[in-house]
Amino acid sequence: MIESTDREITGRHGNLVVREWAATNPGWIALIAHGYGEHSGRYQWVAEQLVGARAQVYAPDHLGHGRSDGERVRFTDAESIVADLETLRQQIAAEHPGLPIVLIGHSMGGMLAARYAQEHQEHLAAVVLSAPVLGTWHVLDLLEHDEIPDTPIDPETLSRDPEVGAAYLADPLVWHGPFKRPTLRAIDSCLLAINDGPALERPTLWVHGEDDELVPEADTRTGIDRIRGDEFHEHIYPGGRHELFNETNKDEVMSDVLTFIGRELNS
């Protein structure tokens, strides 16, 4: 196991905890944007595979998530979290000048990664979107209620591996409560901004599970079609649920991701 170290950065609305997994002789930087309600520590296995491919890996806990500042899972503007990613990118780029940066975003983090890529494409060598919230998202229907119902994420939607759901439920850094209205509004606004924004000019890989009930592939595709650039690749995995990096075929998924990254970095 590769132990991570922590650092803090000053975000737009508070201090953020960032995990770092160090490579002995890094050839590139991987920046991970985690999903709604979770935290960077859930990407330990992912980081280890990336380090094995000579990546220096960084993963912040977003505002209101994990060990970072802020009311739990509450933010009012997704652009501020995109700005936090840019603050971190500037810091690590100064520490590792010349190393190419690959942004990897999962779920809500995929939405943030897509928006970041629209606004800061010049800083990225490639983008990986894992089950990104793009296009439309049925969870936003909760905004129609006068009071947001307590409908936490069903752990069975995460993976066919039951241990993944059990670990998710037992994780004290994961939010297990209801969605919050300001956050849903911020996500809705971000999706609209992405739809109206430019296509992604950086090489992009989209991976998604065919049986993802939390973020259905068909809904995401409506957003993907709005931002698909000239060098865009996709893998849709039969039977896959939401967290492909925690799925029963995670080795296959990671192999596809690393093949894509390696090809783009060496092209």
Rank of each mutant, 00 (worst) to 15 (best):
A113G: 09
A125H: 03
P155V: 00
A125F: 05
Q118C: 01
H145Y: 15
M111V: 06
A114P: 02
V128G: 12
V174R: 08
T183N: 06
A166V: 09
L129A: 07
V174K: 06
L191D: 01
D154M: 02
D150A: 14
L191N: 04
M108I: 03
A170F: 04
E147Q: 14
I148C: 07
A167H: 11
V127F: 00
Y116R: 07
P182W: 08
P172S: 10
G110Q: 07
D146C: 08
L140S: 10
T136Q: 13
E122A: 15
V164W: 01
R181S: 05
P182N: 08
L142F: 12
A170D: 13
K180A: 11
G177N: 11
V164E: 00
E156W: 08
G135L: 05
T136W: 08
I153R: 14
M111C: 13
E119P: 02
D171W: 03
A186L: 03
A166Q: 13
D141C: 09
P162F: 01
P182G: 10
P152I: 06
P132K: 11
L124K: 01
L184W: 02
L143C: 12
E147R: 15
I187H: 06
V139A: 13
P149A: 10
Y116F: 14
L142A: 06
E163Y: 11
T157C: 11
L191I: 11
S189N: 14
V127L: 15
G135S: 10
R115V: 05
E156T: 15
H123Y: 10
A125P: 04
H176L: 04
L173T: 08
V127D: 00
P182F: 08
G109N: 07
D154R: 12
